Structure formats: C-alpha cells, structure tokens
Computed example of a mutant assay.
Amino acid sequence: MNAGVPPLPTGTRLLHIGPHKTGTTSIQGALFAAKDAMPEHGVVFPADSRHPMEAVLAACARPGMIGNTQPTERHWQRLVDQVKATGRRTSVISSEFFADAPDDETIARVVEELGGERVHVLITLRPLARIMPSQWQQYVQNGLRMGYENWLERMLKKAPYEKPNPSFWRRHRHDRLVERWARVAGPERLTVVVVDDRDRGHLMRTFEQLLGLPDNLLQPVPDAANRSLTLAETEMLRKLNMEFRGNGLPDELYSQLVRYGAVMHMKNACAPGPQDVKISTPQWAVEAAAEIGAEMAGRIGGMGVRILGDPALLSVVPQPAEVLPGEPLIAPEVAAQALYGALAAAAAAPVRHSAPAKARTVHQTSSKELVRVLGHRCLKRLRRR
C-alpha cells in the first residue's frame, strides 16, 4: 500500500503521537524490542522504557493515571536530554498521550524541545467503530462506572459530548487532531497513516519504510497485559468500580489492588476463548461513527498532509457482529485469577500492626467496614514504602 514511500531525511526526529487504540502499544513494543538493532541502521529509540508515559503527561500538563506516580517536569526533561543525545542520527519517539496536548502552545513547546524543524509528526488512525469499544473498556480499567450503551449515548448524542470522558473527542476527533498539529509543525512535516486491520503487518512495514529500516526488523511482541477485556470481564470490573467508589476508598489503593493487581493478573493468566462475548457496538452507534469518520476523512484530505493508507476505511460500516444468546458470564477461573491478583498485590504490601486488635471478630464487623479497614491499612503500608 505504501509502495514508493521514501525514508525520512537522515536526522529526522519522528514523533508518533497516536492517538490511543490505533496500534500504539504494538508499535512501541516492536520499537523497544529492536532498540539495540536499530542503531546499526542509523536509527535510535531514545527512551529507557517502551513508553515514556510520565514524561509526555508532564509535557502535556496531564495528571498521572489514578493512583500512579505524578508526572513532573523532571520526567520530561530527561526524555528531551535523551533525544538531544542522539545527535544527528534519526530517532523515533512514540506516545499516544501526545494527542492529549491541550493547546497550540503546548504542541509548539513539544515540537521545539524535541528538535524544531527536525521533527516529523506521525498520526495513526483507525475507524471510530473499532476504537469505541476498546476505548470504553480502557476507561473502565481506569475507574469508569458507566455502562457501554449509556456511554455511547453520552459520546454521540448528548452535546457537548464531554461527560464522562472529555479526553475521548480530544483524542478521536481525528480531523481536529491533525489540524492542531499541522498548524504548529506544518503540513509538510506531518504524515497520517490509516491503519488497515486486515493487514496486521501494515503498520510495522510503514514505520520501517519511514525510518529506512530493513524489512521485518520490527516484529510484534506478545503482550497479554495489553489485550482488551471481554464484555463479562469489563462488566465485572465496572461493578467493582461502583463498589470501590461507593465505599470511598483512595485512588492509590485502586491502582495497587485493582489495576495492577486484579486486572493485570487476570489479563496475563486468562486468554479469552471463542465462547467469550466481545463488546458489541449497537448498529445506530456504528452508523453514527461511520458518518463522523467520513466527515473527518474529507477534512483531513484537504489539509495538505501526506496520507498513507486508504482514508475510505474510516467511514466503512462493518457488518453487525453475531450476538450470542444469553447474558455474558464470567468463567470461575477468570474470577478466581482476578481475586488472586488483588490478594497477591495486598500481600506484597503487608501491614504491621502497631497495637493489639480490638476484641471483635470478623463476623461481628460489617463487610463495608471490613473493606474500608483493609483499604486504609494497605494505603498506610503503601505510603510507608
């Protein structure tokens, strides 16, 4: 599809800004895995981890994930220094959180500090109908309590379409995203890649062409932790979010026990099977997303930026998915692995009792109070650490 696309000039700093759910994790894993092989071909991946998330969040004045380390200017400055250290070689930086940059001033700062005119911006796009279920379950993994159809109503029908996730259209109104970055970097220094889900290797080959790397140097890295949740898994987590918030437990505890405990262990230990129900988007929402996609593709086509791939894919209405009869049920093994993950996370931060427990048995204590006590004890231990 990209026949004849020449490599970017030597010394380019390729800045991949996502947005979310457009193959970012896959390409970041492949780039990081090839980090030691790329310098032989004049390309550097200047970061200590697959995804320098804290650095980018700091640059875009965004808070960290619930309960995580708060981004600071120090994180961003370290990444800038690492990019500068690449000298005149080509380098590549990738983070979907660049798409969250709030204004032109922030974008200008990012572009200037990463190399000014040497920066070439790359934006990857997928059809909204494929992004929406994946993005919703990701929001649930970050604490969202709203059901999918209600969420779709808020995102597609209820202006100003900002609640409960104002970041969604900031990221996924793709024509405006391209417009913001082209306005600062210049359309001649911006490439849009339309990801074709029918060709799993298309995105890897596109990066290789732009960076002047040998064919097949970039390879997908298996990452069970990045898989999407099934409908039953997402609903279980959503209900847990409701209980967690209803009991007023702290964000740090959610991060430790739920996101990096229950969810992470469940995703790594259990692979969905053909009997597991996927998240299905109702036809009205699919058609609304395709209509928005057609409008976005038309506007992007008139901006003077380079487009690789087929923009018509952004407005395709996929065939309705087969919906299995009955309610989605979570397998006992999946529930057990989620529970074990939370328990293992709690056990990794044991609480030392400084005073004798009061003479009251567990059976004499309400479940709500037990959850609150456990939460505060784990949080106390986390703060000590």
Rank of each mutant, 00 (worst) to 15 (best):
E188W: 12
E188V: 11
R189T: 07
L190E: 05
T191W: 03
V195H: 07
V195N: 09
R198L: 08
R198I: 03
R198K: 11
D199W: 12
D199R: 14
G201Y: 08
H202P: 10
H202T: 09
L203S: 12
M204G: 13
R205M: 05
T206I: 09
F207H: 15
F207R: 09
F207M: 12
F207Y: 15
E208V: 04
E208R: 02
E208N: 06
Q209N: 02
L210Q: 02
L210D: 01
L210W: 01
L211A: 09
G212T: 02
L213K: 03
N216H: 15
N216R: 15
L218A: 12
Q219T: 15
P220L: 05
A224W: 11
L229N: 14
L231K: 11
A232N: 06
E233W: 04
T234L: 03
E235R: 15
E235A: 13
M236T: 15
L237W: 13
L237G: 13
L237R: 11
R238A: 06
K239Y: 13
K239L: 15
L240N: 10
N241V: 00
N241I: 00
M242W: 10
E243I: 03
E243V: 05
F244P: 02
F244E: 00
R245T: 09
R245D: 09
G246T: 03
G246N: 07
G248P: 13
G248F: 10
P250K: 11
E252T: 14
L253N: 09
Q256I: 04
L257R: 10
Y260C: 04
G261A: 02
G261D: 00
G261V: 01
A262K: 01
A262M: 01
A262P: 02
V263A: 03
V263E: 04
M264C: 07
M266R: 00
N268T: 13
C270R: 09
A271W: 12
G273M: 03
D276G: 04
V277S: 01
V277E: 00
V277W: 01
V277A: 00
K278I: 02
K278P: 07
I279M: 02
S280E: 03
S280W: 00
S280A: 06
S280G: 00
T281C: 08
P282T: 05
A285W: 09
A285N: 05
A285Y: 09
V286M: 12
E287H: 11
A289M: 06
A290T: 10
A290E: 07
E291P: 08
I292S: 07
I292M: 14
E295M: 14
E295H: 14
M296F: 14
A297V: 08
A297D: 05
G298A: 10
G298S: 13
R299H: 04
I300C: 05
I300T: 06
G301R: 07
G302D: 01
G304K: 03
R306M: 03
L308T: 04
P311C: 04
L313P: 05
L313K: 00
S315N: 10
S315G: 12
V316K: 14
V316T: 11
